[in-house]
Amino acid sequence: MDLDHIWHQFIDHLLDNDEITEVSVKKFTGIPFIYIHYHSLKTDEGLLFFIIKKAASHSMRGKQLHCETIFVRQEDDVYVFRHRFFVPQKKMFCCGNLCPDCILFRS
């Protein structure tokens, strides 16, 4: 699975929103951070977080991916989030706790 393609789709979906003027991704120690220039009449972090989740879900559609978005900081109109796409890990052994996703229950 090519995550670069997912990232490009994600950024394109973010830029489709009229209130977002610029998006950039920078990696520090291997962790991707997205810098979003967000101009809105009311500065609502919750609305921007919803826009990010919606764009991520559109870019992940049809693939076995999850995403994690964590707010880091805001300076004027620039919002910084730690955002990553990851493949969910499946259990490879039985731990004996009768977990709902136990490999013993797979057919």
Rank of each mutant, 00 (worst) to 15 (best):
H37R: 10
I6K: 09
K26R: 15
D101I: 08
K91T: 05
H8W: 05
V78F: 02
G96P: 07
R61P: 00
Y38S: 02
I31V: 15
G30P: 09
R106Y: 06
E19D: 13
F93W: 09
T21K: 15
V80H: 04
K90R: 14
V80M: 05
H13A: 08
G62Y: 10
E22Q: 15
D16G: 08
D44W: 12
T43P: 01
Q89E: 13
D18H: 14
P32L: 02
L65T: 04
I52Q: 07
Y38W: 15
L104I: 14
S59D: 02
I51L: 08
Q9V: 00
T69Y: 03
L3V: 09
L14C: 07
V87T: 13
F33P: 08
S59K: 05
V72I: 11
M92R: 15
M92T: 15
H83Y: 06
F85N: 10
L14M: 13
L14I: 03
K42F: 11
I36D: 01
S107G: 10
F85P: 07
P88K: 10
Q89G: 05
H13R: 06
K54W: 04
C102E: 03
F33Q: 06
H66P: 00
Q74N: 11
D12N: 12
K53P: 00
S24Q: 14
F93P: 00
R61L: 11
F10Y: 07
I51W: 02
I51P: 01
F86D: 05
Q74W: 02
I20K: 10
P88E: 03
I103D: 04
S57L: 14
I34M: 11
Q9D: 09
I31R: 14
I20F: 06
F50Y: 13
H83S: 08
L41A: 10
N97F: 06
G30F: 00
E19G: 07
L14V: 02
K42P: 00
S107A: 11
V78G: 00
V87A: 10
F81L: 09
F10N: 05
M60I: 10
D16V: 03
G46F: 04
T29K: 13
Q64A: 01
Q89S: 12
I51F: 11
K90I: 11
K42G: 00
W7L: 06
S57G: 08
D44Q: 15
H5N: 05
Q74K: 12
C102A: 06
D44L: 15
I20W: 10
M92P: 00
V72N: 04
Q89K: 08
